[in-house]
Amino acid sequence: MTTYTALLRAINVGGTGKLPMARLKAICEDAELTGVRTYIASGNVVFDSEKDEMAVKMALRTRLEAYAGRPVGVLVRTAAEMAAVLDRNPFSDRAAKWTVAIFLDEPPRAGALEDVRGMTDEEIVPGAREIYVHYTSGMGRSKLKIPAAASGTARNMNTIAKLVELAGSRR
Rank of each mutant, 00 (worst) to 15 (best):
D93W: 01
G17M: 08
D115R: 09
E29V: 04
G14N: 15
K51P: 12
E123L: 11
D52R: 04
R88H: 09
Y132M: 04
R61W: 08
I160K: 02
A149H: 06
E53W: 08
Y132K: 10
A148K: 04
R155C: 03
T78P: 03
M21H: 05
G69S: 09
P20Y: 01
R77N: 07
T78D: 06
Y135V: 06
D87K: 09
A161W: 00
T5M: 12
A96P: 10
K57Y: 10
T62C: 06
R129C: 14
V74A: 08
R9D: 10
T99W: 05
H134F: 12
M54F: 12
E130A: 08
I131H: 03
A112L: 04
E122H: 00
N89L: 06
A149Y: 04
D105E: 14
V36Y: 06
E114V: 07
T153M: 09
A110W: 12
T38L: 12
G43F: 11
M21L: 01
A150V: 12
N12A: 01
R61M: 12
E106N: 15
A110F: 09
G14C: 02
G140W: 01
S92V: 03
R37N: 13
G127M: 00
L33E: 07
A150T: 13
A150N: 14
T38M: 09
A154H: 13
D105G: 15
G17I: 01
P108L: 00
V36E: 13
K25V: 09
R155G: 00
W98K: 15
A41S: 12
G73F: 11
G127S: 02
S142P: 07
P90K: 00
G138S: 05
E123G: 09
F47V: 11
G140V: 01
L104W: 00
M139K: 15
G168F: 14
P108D: 03
R88E: 04
T62W: 05
R109E: 14
S42R: 12
A6G: 06
G69E: 04
M54L: 05
D87G: 08
Y4K: 07
M21R: 02
A59P: 12
E122P: 15
G14L: 01
D30A: 15
E81V: 00
A128S: 11
G14R: 10
T78I: 04
K145I: 14
A110G: 11
S92H: 03
L144D: 08
H134Q: 06
T99S: 14
S169F: 01
E130I: 05
T153I: 01
G111H: 10
G69T: 03
E81R: 10
A31R: 06
M119D: 08
M157R: 10
T62R: 15
S137R: 09
E165K: 15
A161V: 05
G35F: 03
N12W: 05
A55V: 07
T5L: 14
I131K: 02
M139G: 14
L7W: 12
G43E: 10
L113T: 11
P108T: 04
I11K: 08
T136N: 04
T62A: 15
E122M: 03
M119T: 11
T120G: 06
A161F: 01
I40Q: 09
G35S: 12
G69A: 08
E81H: 08
T2K: 13
A22F: 00
A22V: 09
A112K: 02
D121V: 03
G69D: 05
I27C: 02
Y132E: 05
V36K: 01
L60E: 03
A167S: 10
A154F: 02
D115H: 13
V74P: 00
